[in-house]
Amino acid sequence: MTALSTPLVPRTRRSPRNGRKWIFTIAVGLVALLVNVPLLNALLVSFKPTGEIAKNPLSLPTAPTFDHYANVLYASGYNFPQFFLNSTLIALGTVALVLLIAVPSTYAIIRLGFGGRWIINSASGLRLLPAIFFVVPFFVLFSAAGLQDTILGLIVANTFLNLPLAIILLASGLRDIPNEIEEAAAMDGASVYRTLLGIVLPMLAPTMVAVSVLVFIFTWNDYLFALVLSTSNSTPVTLGAANFVTSTGIRWGDISAASFLSTLPPLAFAVFAQRYLVSGLSAGAVKG
């Protein structure tokens, strides 16, 4: 009898791409953890009693407490809900005003040839200037115009600061839209306004969402303009957290609770629009 030969089973080899993928994933995870250490630390401190914060701010809370959140939300003399509402109105108002100005302006520059490339270059250069460069002129102008310590004043200031970024991103997204589509609409009798509203805007939606997310986050996190241009009526959450720095000491637990609560809206906004944010920011990056 002849012995039956067993078939040889080929060994599976691990693809070197899978190894590189795991290394890349671990590296990105470590970087993400390192970047979020301040946020995690603020979360831990916000649940610690005051005595534990002084001993070791990086340790886990042994007796978690919600006293700091209660102080933020209900303490007398500290109106966190009003600060939160002010930040929401300022951020949303800035997003609306930036899009209202940037979309038609960018369309006129890119499609209608208004002004030429020097406007885009000027916007890029203007965005590179530090915000503190504009603080004193804004303070003088807003004081004379009666916009000091108003929601509208902070909306205008943040619009001026974020408008160049919006124009740059919208210009990249607009260049990805083929001219033939608009030319076909013009041959069918569509006006410039109808082409912009009915054809260009729907195709430009991912970039507009990306611009909205970035403008919202930058405006929500603004501290410098809020510090100089507001005193009481338009105080946002970024400036309101500083009220826990008193003459008797720094209330780190209350500051951490206020800071953590203030990060939730931009974080939720960015997560919700993440798909549009990635596609909007990558507009104009690949040609061919």
Rank of each mutant, 00 (worst) to 15 (best):
T94E: 02
P61I: 11
F83T: 05
D67S: 13
A54G: 01
N79C: 01
F84Q: 06
L89E: 11
V98A: 03
V98Q: 01
A91V: 10
Y69C: 07
Y78K: 13
F80K: 05
T94R: 04
A70I: 12
F80A: 06
L85G: 08
V72F: 00
P57R: 10
L92Q: 02
T106W: 02
Y74W: 13
S105F: 14
S76C: 00
S76M: 00
T88E: 00
I53K: 10
A54E: 10
L89D: 06
Y78G: 00
D67I: 05
A102I: 01
L97S: 08
A75G: 13
F66M: 15
L99P: 07
P104F: 02
L97Y: 07
A75V: 02
S87D: 05
L99R: 11
N79E: 10
I90W: 01
A91F: 05
Y69H: 03
Q82F: 08
P81C: 12
P57S: 11
L85S: 07
I101H: 06
Q82G: 12
G77I: 09
N56S: 15
Q82S: 15
A91Q: 04
V72M: 07
L58Q: 10
N71P: 00
S76Q: 12
N86L: 10
A96Y: 06
L60T: 08
S105V: 08
T94K: 08
A102Q: 03
S105R: 00
Y74V: 14
A102T: 01
T65Q: 03
Y69M: 01
P104Q: 05
T88C: 04
Y69I: 00
V98T: 05
L99G: 07
G93W: 04
V95F: 04
Y78S: 12
G77Q: 10
F83D: 06
Y78H: 15
N86R: 13
T94W: 01
N56A: 15
K55D: 12
L73Y: 06
N79S: 11
I90N: 07
L97C: 04
V103G: 01
S76F: 02
F83R: 08
F83W: 14
N79T: 03
L89S: 06
Y74D: 09
V95W: 03
A63H: 13
T62V: 11
F80R: 09
Y107K: 01
S105Y: 09
T88W: 08
A96I: 14
A91G: 10
V103N: 01
L100S: 04
D67G: 09
L73F: 15
N86W: 11
Y78T: 14
A63C: 00
L58M: 13
L89F: 04
L60V: 13
L100T: 09
K55N: 13
P81Q: 10
V98F: 03
I90Q: 06
I90C: 05
P64S: 04
T88K: 01
L100A: 12
